[in-house]
């Protein structure tokens, strides 16, 4: 029974330590941010931050991240009090179509901005290259990340 520190709180999750972190987060902790996309570390929908670094939770076992700080989309902000990055995705210019990939995109962008607060467009694009979007909203997401980077 792994013990996970998620968004600042510690939880004992009932599954096996070998089970994917994604299922512990979604099914046991009932978090909606990380998404199942491929289970193969190919699409980025399941991204979470572990000690600030982007990690694909579909191929990471829950036991492997015990004791580390796990941040999910919910940990960035709430409906009532969204983070600047989340706010930048909610403007008149929709930064998505369906939004299924948005969890991974926002968390990958968060890791980028934490490391490089004023990235160029090319740097944002490169950082997001491992996140797949099928709706074709890539340019809108890049603009949203750049908008967030300009906010104080």
């Amino acid at each position: 029974m792994p013990s996970l520190k998620v968004n600042g709180r510690v939880y004992d999750v009932p599954g096996s330590a070998d089970a994917p972190l994604l299922f512990a987060l979604r099914n046991d902790l009932k978090l909606n941010g990380p998404k199942f996309g491929c289970g193969l570390s190919q699409c980025g929908a399941c991204l979470v931050l572990v000690d600030g670094q982007p990690v694909r939770s579909c191929v990471t076992s829950a036991g492997a991240v015990e004791g580390q700080e796990i941040t999910t989309l919910e940990g960035l902000g709430t409906l009532e009090n969204p983070s600047r990055l989340q706010k930048a995705f909610m403007t008149e210019e929709a930064a998505m179509q369906c939004g299924y990939c948005i969890n991974g995109v926002i968390l990958r962008a968060k890791a980028l901005l934490d490391q490089n607060p004023k990235p160029s467009e090319g740097e944002v694009r490169l950082a997001l290259d491992g996140n797949l979007c099928r709706c074709g909203a890539q340019n809108r997401m890049v603009r949203a990340v750049l908008r967030a980077s300009r906010e104080p």
Binding site: R26, N27, K30, L31, N32, G33, K35, F36, T72, L73, E74, L76, G77, T78, L79, P82, Q86, F89, M90, T91, E92, E93, A94, A95, M96, G99, Y100, I102, N103, I106
Partner: peptide
């Protein structure tokens, strides 16, 4: 007018909106 989409706030904050979020 381009009104902000009504479904997006939930999608960027992890509020339940997807079929995957039904439990």
């Amino acid at each position: 007018k381009s009104v902000p989409r009504i479904d997006i706030p939930a999608k960027v904050t992890g509020a339940p909106v997807w079929i995957q979020d039904l439990r």
